[in-house]
Amino acid sequence: MNLFPCTLVYVDVDVSPGPNSTNRDPLAYVSQAICLNNSLRRAGMPKLTIMTNAPAVVSQRLEGMAKEHRPALMTLKATIELPKNTPFYAAHFKLDLMDQMADSLPADTMLLLLDADMVALRALERNLIERCAEAGLGAFDISDQVFPPYGSDCVVADLEIVADRRLRNPRWYGGEFLLATPAALRRLVPCARASYARYVTEIGRVRHHGDEAFISAALNVLVDEGQGLIEVGAYQAVGRHWPGNNYRDLRWFRCCSFVHLPGGKALLEREARFSEFAPDRFWRQMRMAHLRGRVRHALKRLARLLSVERLATLSAYALRSVKS
């Protein structure tokens, strides 16, 4: 089974950067995709294809690269319509991307849909690829990262609103990684279109916005109906890393095939300036960003603690004043 690595770069100068992006350049995601493509080449995987609604503009950004090192380009046929102030606006168009891929991929090729703000550290295990090909789908279950901070009742409620049904075992899937055969895509896309329609209708009611909401709902529905799905996170196919986060020991990510850095976009954009991806150089930068993040987290916790103590002191002083 062959792999077709692909990422979405949706360009719209009227849309604000995503919630996790600080770069105002509408083509910043092209730089991140360049880094991802360089890392794929370094890991011995197929080159990346950028699917975009603005191929001419993206092509100009790639002109400074050697032709043999450039990602491939495909034109996205965008059909989705929603307010441009919707959080994670561009990510919604992944549904159009999957729709196109369902009809264009050869039967012996799986779509490997990746977010641009990722790097490949090593090739995916052949055994995992075969398992995903047999099941039809491989997805990244991040329920353990989403349920605790937002509350399981809230997350499950959002999934079931968008799915329009009670789900047997609701799971939340990260949008940064999806492996799918063309046949599975042809089952997933209509289901995701239906969940997207309900998501748009209920967008003021659900708390979670973006492609993860309606794609996760669709994946849950398909699984309940008997669709096979391999949870790839357990195989360390992908890990999601936030600078300074203690969710996992930093060393765990070194064993992942892919690392997603939603809070490390600037690091990836700097790395894209090099013609070749160097894992050791990248890892040093990632480790430094992680340590800086740990310091920021510690300072924030200290500031909160001092604020609470100061508030308690002021409250005690006010109480004594009232009594006197």
Score class of each variant (00 low, 15 high):
N23W: 11
C255V: 03
R281A: 13
S104E: 07
K94L: 05
R296C: 06
V322S: 14
V30K: 04
F140Y: 12
R193P: 02
R304S: 11
A194E: 15
E225Y: 07
E231S: 14
A318M: 09
L124E: 04
M288V: 13
N220K: 03
L62I: 09
A157N: 11
L82F: 11
L314S: 14
Q285A: 09
V13N: 15
V189F: 01
L95S: 01
R187E: 12
H297D: 12
A218H: 01
I50L: 06
L121Y: 10
S31H: 12
G151V: 10
R205F: 02
A135P: 03
N220M: 01
R320E: 08
E81H: 12
A266F: 05
P279Y: 04
V156I: 15
Q60C: 09
W172S: 08
G18D: 13
S307L: 07
F282H: 04
L3W: 06
R287S: 11
M45Y: 02
D117N: 09
T109A: 10
P148F: 11
L229K: 02
E130R: 13
Y196N: 02
P83R: 05
S104L: 06
S195Y: 00
L311G: 08
V155S: 11
I80L: 14
G175W: 00
W242A: 10
Y235C: 14
A237P: 03
R310D: 10
P55W: 11
R281N: 12
E212M: 06
R207T: 08
A194Q: 14
E81L: 09
R131K: 13
F88T: 06
L179G: 05
L114P: 04
P55S: 12
Y235E: 15
A90P: 08
N127M: 11
A197H: 08
A91L: 09
L112R: 00
R273A: 15
L306N: 13
L121G: 05
A28D: 12
M288T: 13
P243D: 05
Q100W: 07
P149G: 04
R294A: 08
P262W: 03
R292M: 11
R273Y: 13
A123L: 08
G210W: 00
Y317N: 13
C35R: 08
A56Y: 11
L179Y: 01
H92E: 05
V232D: 07
H297C: 10
D117S: 07
M286N: 05
V119K: 02
E202K: 04
E81K: 13
L105K: 06
S315D: 10
P55H: 11
A54G: 08
L250G: 03
L219N: 04
R131P: 02
G44T: 05
H69R: 12
M118R: 01
N23A: 15
Y10A: 02
D25I: 13
R301Q: 11
V162K: 01
L111R: 03
S257R: 07
R168W: 04
K94Y: 01
T75I: 09
V156F: 07
S315M: 10
N246G: 14
P170W: 06
T313D: 14
P83N: 06
K67E: 10
T181W: 02
